[in-house]
Nucleic acid binder design. Structure first.
Length: 766
RNA sequence: GCAGACGUGGCGGAAUUGGUAUACGCGUACGGUUCAGAACCGUAUCCCGCAAGGGUUGGAGGUUCGAGUCCUCUCGUCUGCACCA
């Protein structure tokens, strides 16, 4: 009986309200006039399939619930959406299904947006952007030009990951590290994400962004932003600030020659019993030239061997090295210190040379044992320590250190360094783990790097910098001869349609095939010149998109300054923890550059950031190979967006992720139906009793109601959506019980619906 | 190896500052409604025990009037980073 009253037709209700929201622009704040702006942003999706999976929906709904909550508190919430459609993932997908990436984007774009629509998020649909849209990447290229002009973009040759099977460069994150165990040893294997082939290293000349210039600023900024601690810690580690000293060891090889090492343990200097150089340390060439006979052959053999290992991309393994036959002198006591070339010394970190202190460094200990190098103890451990078994790496009082005996490690660091400084053999130094950002990709599906190389200017040593006499030229030490940015009025450099877009395997981008694209006149001298054919890293596209959203109506600039002043920085940013370092660090870097270039007036892009967890299915990660990927569309059709949204948020704490189970979603639908029913019934009751007795809200109920409001509010603010929903359920159970006893008031029903509204926006609105 | 997170019923998961462990939901059992089923409604549901009572937050200790929560050790799972000198 009365079934139509009790059952709600989710499909009808959802379609109805989505149309109203769209037609009335309910979620389109007035960008230039808003008095109370709140920028609620979620990481835009990176399409690499036909559509979104339920994990994406989980992320987006969580962000939308927060936005709807802020809107209910009276803020003008701006919640834009777009597609991070450029990049290797999308391109790989296109290759896999054997379709051109341009076509794939055209074909799938609507589906992505449609999926995002039917889930019922309060998106500002008029402000969407796609990174492959020339109107967007025009400004991505403009940003490249700004960095170039500021001396923050440069070219350098460096080893990159190369997959011999796919014949392409791979980004670090596309290289999978596996532990391979056999009976007597454990090894690490680096393989291609797509084909499983072992990755090798290859030298290529690349464009870099000087992010290291901002290392200290990126570190300092962490203190003033409200981000998940986990993510801040990840960035802290990635920046990897290490304070120590550079120490110079004089050499006898040539006049005035020396080896400079970096150390954080200057207190152990007197325990140095050898020096170790990386295989491609500059001094190695000198050594090779000076060495004679068998020794020379042995060194050459070792270098060849190291190079081969390096090319095969095998970083780990046993420590190996070779004595060069040359010695350095100890900077304090003048002792002879043998120089080795060792495989465990990293080229890119510090000076590419280390002082070997076997008694107080694990790695040096291992190496010294293998090559029978002296192990000299200079620190007294707190407790008994067997120096024949391992190194003591802690601090303590010094011994065997001449004038420095009895000093604590801390005092010794200072005193030793002070003496070195006087002798001109040492200085305070800071090292960072952070490396400069490689921007170049020898790929097709990205924004072409807007640079032109002129052979003629190069010969004459001319470049953009020499013409402009720019200050920035002094900062940039690289050989910029011949390089010019594309005139800003000529942007965008449109990505040409190239039928054979696949990577060439030669380390050159597919764009090089297109003569019309490549050949261009030099902007300075007018001679025949060539365009850069590499495209930029996708992370550049996503490093600034938050600035573009509110300014999409602005055609002549990347962003409008008054709108930007009103809406930015982003108030709340939500996204996956997997972007803890890369995307979030790059965005911070780009923001700081813009601040320094006086293009914006803030230096952190995201005031508040929260990472959401991972949604799994039946206790296991969703993956195509496992066949447990959940398609959200089916669930929206069957249960409705409201049910799916609420269920996703009920699976577990948002920051921790959750477990999606088919049985569970029925319970959520049951709950929403009960809400529907009690609302319908209480409305009827209220109609009938309007002239008769009026139901009053009692003390007990009032207490319960306010307790619930408080809990739901606090929980949503903390993104504890699961417990917020539980509290709403309890309130619902309470109302059902009192409805049987005496009926419920409209106020109580209203509170129920309002609390539920962010989770189930369609039915509560209806 | 280093760093971080986590470990609670049959299951997903709750538990402000240390203060009634297992909220909320799933599942299950029994009952109601129904010609029957689905749906819905009601009751029960951490474990042992007929009961009184006792036990329980991976394991072992400790601090405390009181510990899921704090400390030490240990086992296990997951996630970053990895020869960073």
């Amino acid at each position: 009986m009365n079934k139509p009253d009790v059952d709600f037709n989710h499909a009808e209700i959802e379609a109805k309200w989505q149309k109203v929201w769209q037609d009335e622009g309910t979620y389109e704040p007035e960008l230039s006039k808003s008095k109370n702006p709140y920028y609620n942003l979620m990481m835009f999706p990176y399409p690499s399939a036909e559509g979104l999976h339920v994990g994406n929906m989980y992320a987006f709904c969580g962000s939308d619930i927060y936005g709807r909550y802020k809107r209910m508190l009276g803020r003008d919430v701006f919640e834009p959406i777009g597609l991070d459609g450029f990049g290797i993932h999308s391109e790989n997908y296109a290759m896999k299904i054997n379709e051109h990436p341009v076509k794939v984007a055209e074909r799938t774009q609507d589906n992505f947006y449609n999926q995002l629509k039917i889930i019922g998020n309060g998106f500002a649909w008029r402000q969407k952007l796609e990174t492959y849209d020339p109107d967007y990447y025009k400004w991505t290229q403009w940003i490249f030009v700004q960095l170039f002009k500021a001396g923050l973009a440069y070219r350098k040759s460096a080893p990159v990951n190369w997959c011999p099977s796919c014949q392409t460069v791979l980004a670090d994150e596309q290289v999978i590290k596996e532990q391979v165990s056999s009976i007597n040893k454990q090894e690490e294997k680096f393989s291609c994400e797509r084909c499983g082939t072992e990755v090798v290293k290859r030298d290529l000349t690349q464009w870099y962004f000087k992010i290291t210039h901002y290392a200290q600023s990126l570190l300092d900024g962490l203190e003033k932003i409200d981000w998940s601690e986990k993510v801040k810690l990840a960035q802290l580690n990635w920046l990897g600030k290490s304070e120590g000293a550079k120490i110079m060891f004089p050499l006898d090889i040539e006049k005035d020659s020396s080896v400079v090492v970096f150390t954080t343990r200057a207190d152990t200097l007197m325990g140095t019993s050898y020096l170790a150089l990386a295989a491609d340390h500059p001094l190695v060439i000198t050594i090779l030239n000076k060495a004679k006979g068998q020794l020379r052959e042995d060194i050459q053999e070792f270098l060849d061997y190291s190079h081969k290992i390096f090319e095969r991309g095998e970083p780990a393994g046993e420590k190996e090295g070779i004595y060069t036959g040359f010695n350095a002198r100890h900077p304090i006591n003048g002792d002879e210190i043998p120089i080795y070339i060792a495989n465990y010394v990293l080229t890119g970190y510090g000076t590419g040379a280390v002082m070997g202190v076997p008694a107080h460094d694990e790695r040096d200990f291992e190496f010294a044992n293998k090559y029978q190098i002296r192990i000299k103890q200079v620190i007294i451990p707190d407790e008994h320590h067997d120096f024949s078994q391992s190194a003591y790496t802690g601090f303590g009082r010094l011994i065997n250190s001449g004038a420095f005996d009895n000093l604590s490690s801390l005092e010794a660091k200072e005193k030793i360094l002070a003496e070195l400084v006087i002798k001109g053999l040492g200085s305070v130094d800071v090292n960072w783990h952070l490396r400069d950002w490689i921007i170049s990709r020898q790929r097709y599906w990205g924004a072409p790097i807007p640079m032109i190389f002129c052979q003629r200017c190069a010969k004459e040593g001319m470049s953009w910098f020499t013409h402009k006499d720019a200050d920035s030229a002094k900062n940039s030490k690289w050989d910029s001869a011949g390089w010019y940015p594309v005139e800003e009025s000529n942007l965008p450099v449109v990505l040409p349609y190239i039928e054979n877009f696949r990577p060439t395997g030669t380390g050159v981008s597919p764009l090089a095939q297109d003569a019309n694209f490549v050949n261009v006149k030099c902007p300075a001298c007018g001679a025949e010149a060539k365009r850069e054919t590499d495209v930029s890293d996708t992370f550049l596209d996503s490093a600034w998109y938050f600035l573009r959203y509110p300014s999409l109506g602005t055609k002549k600039k990347a962003w409008d300054s008054s709108i930007t002043a009103k809406w930015l920085p982003v108030d709340m940013y939500i996204g996956g923890a997997e972007h803890s370092v890369l995307h979030l660090l790059y965005s911070r870097f780009i923001t700081k550059v813009f601040k320094d270039l006086k293009l914006i007036n803030f230096d952190e892009p995201f005031v508040k950031f929260r990472a959401h967890g991972l949604l799994i299915k039946d206790g296991a990660k969703m993956s195509k190979s496992r066949g447990n990927v959940v398609n959200p569309d089916d669930y929206v059709a069957k249960f409705g967006a409201d049910t799916l949204r609420a269920y996703l948020m009920f699976c577990g704490r948002y920051s921790e992720g959750g477990d999606f189970r088919d049985e569970g979603i029925l319970g959520m639908q049951r709950f929403l139906k009960r809400v529907w029913k009690i609302v319908v019934e209480s409305c009827k009751q209220s109609d009938q009793s309007s002239t008769a007795k009026k139901i009053e809200i009692d003390r007990n109920s009032s207490y319960m109601m306010h307790k619930t409001i408080k809990k739901v509010t606090v929980d949503i603010e903390n993104l504890s959506y699961n417990t917020a929903i539980a509290a709403i359920m309890e309130w619902m159970n309470f109302l059902e019980a009192s409805s049987k006893e005496k009926g419920v008031t409209i106020t109580e029903i209203e509170v129920l619906l309002k609390l539920l509204a962010p989770f189930a926006p369609h039915m509560t609105e209806d």
